[in-house]
C-alpha cells in the first residue's frame, strides 16, 4: 500500500518531498559510479527486478484485507538505503502514473517510507546479523517491509491526528498500525523467503564466477 493520491495535506506532501530529495540525489550519484562495474550492474538489475515483481503482488492476508510486499530487501542489503530510494522511486512512479496506486502528490512520502526509512531499518538489521548471510537477508527483508508500513502509519498519523495533542498522533498511529502491521507481517515473511532464494542464487553464482575467473 502507498498513500493514495491527494490523501496527504499539501504541507505534508511538500515536507516528504523535501525529505526524500537529498537521498534521491545521493543515490543517483552512487548508481552512476556503481554502474561502471559489471558485477554491480548485474546486482542493481536484480535489485530493481525484485522490487518490480514483489511490489506488484497484491496478496490477501490474515486480516481479510490485502496488501503487497515492498521487495526492497535485496536492494538495501546490497547497496544501502540511498540507492534503494532511487530504485523504489522508479517503481512508485510507474504505479502512481499507470495504476493510480500511490500518487504524484504523495510520491515524496511514499519514497520516504518504502525507499528510505523502511529499508534503513532493514539495512541496520543486516549489518548486525551479517555473520549468517541467509538469516541476515531474511531478517533485513522482513524488517524493511514491516517498517515501511510502520512509517506509512506514522506519516498518516502526523497528518491526521485524532486530537490536536501529541496523544492524538499516537492514537491515530495505533489505528493505522492495526490495519497495516497485522496485514503486513505474514506478507513480509513470505517476501523474505523469496528474497533469500533469489539472493542466494544470484550472489552465490556471481561469487563462484569471480573465483573461477581469478
Amino acid at each position: 500500500m502507498h498513500i493514495a493520491e491527494g490523501f496527504l495535506p499539501p504541507e505534508w506532501c511538500a515536507f516528504w518531498y523535501i525529505f526524500s530529495t537529498p537521498f534521491l540525489i545521493y543515490g543517483a550519484m552512487k548508481i552512476k559510479s556503481k554502474i561502471t562495474n559489471r558485477t554491480d550492474k548485474v546486482l542493481l538489475a536484480v535489485s530493481i527486478g525484485f522490487i518490480f515483481v514483489l511490489s506488484a503482488m497484491k496478496m490477501p492476508s490474515v486480516t481479510g484485507s490485502c496488501s503487497h510486499p515492498t521487495g526492497t530487501g535485496i536492494a538495501v542489503v546490497l547497496f544501502g538505503p540511498a540507492i534503494t530510494a532511487v530504485l523504489s522511486a522508479i517503481v512508485l512512479l510507474y504505479q502512481a502514473l499507470l495504476l493510480a496506486h500511490g500518487g504524484i502528490t504523495t510520491l515524496g512520502a511514499n519514497i520516504a517510507s518504502m525507499g528510505i526509512i523502511g529499508p534503513f531499518f532493514g539495512w541496520i538489521v543486516y549489518r548486525i546479523a551479517k555473520k549468517n548471510r541467509k538469516i541476515a537477508v531474511f531478517a533485513a527483508t522482513a524488517v524493511a517491509d514491516v517498517m515501511t508500513y510502520v512509517v506509512t502509519s506514522i506519516q498518516l498519523a502526523l497528518a491526521f491526528p485524532a486530537t490536536q495533542e501529541i496523544g492524538g498522533i499516537i492514537e491515530s498511529a495505533i489505528r493505522f498500525l492495526a490495519v497495516f502491521a497485522i496485514t503486513q507481517i505474514p506478507i513480509a515473511i513470505l517476501e523474505s523467503f523469496l528474497a533469500v532464494a533469489v539472493f542466494d542464487q544470484v550472489v552465490k553464482r556471481l561469487e563462484a564466477g569471480e573465483v573461477s575467473r581469478a
Binding site: M1, H2, I3, A4, E5, G6, F7, P9, P10, K58, P60, S61, T63, G64, S65, C66, S67, G103, I104, T105, L156, F160, P161, A162, S172, R175, F176, V179, F180, T183, Q184
Partner: peptide
C-alpha cells in the same frame, strides 16, 4: 472482502477528519 489495506486506511482518515477531501 480482501479489500486493499490502503482503502481501509482511507476510511480511517475519513473517520478521523470527516471534512478531509483528497485535494488531487
Amino acid at each position: 472482502s480482501w479489500i486493499g489495506a490502503d482503502e481501509i486506511a482511507q476510511e480511517i482518515i475519513k473517520e478521523i477528519n470527516p471534512n478531509f477531501e483528497p485535494w488531487f
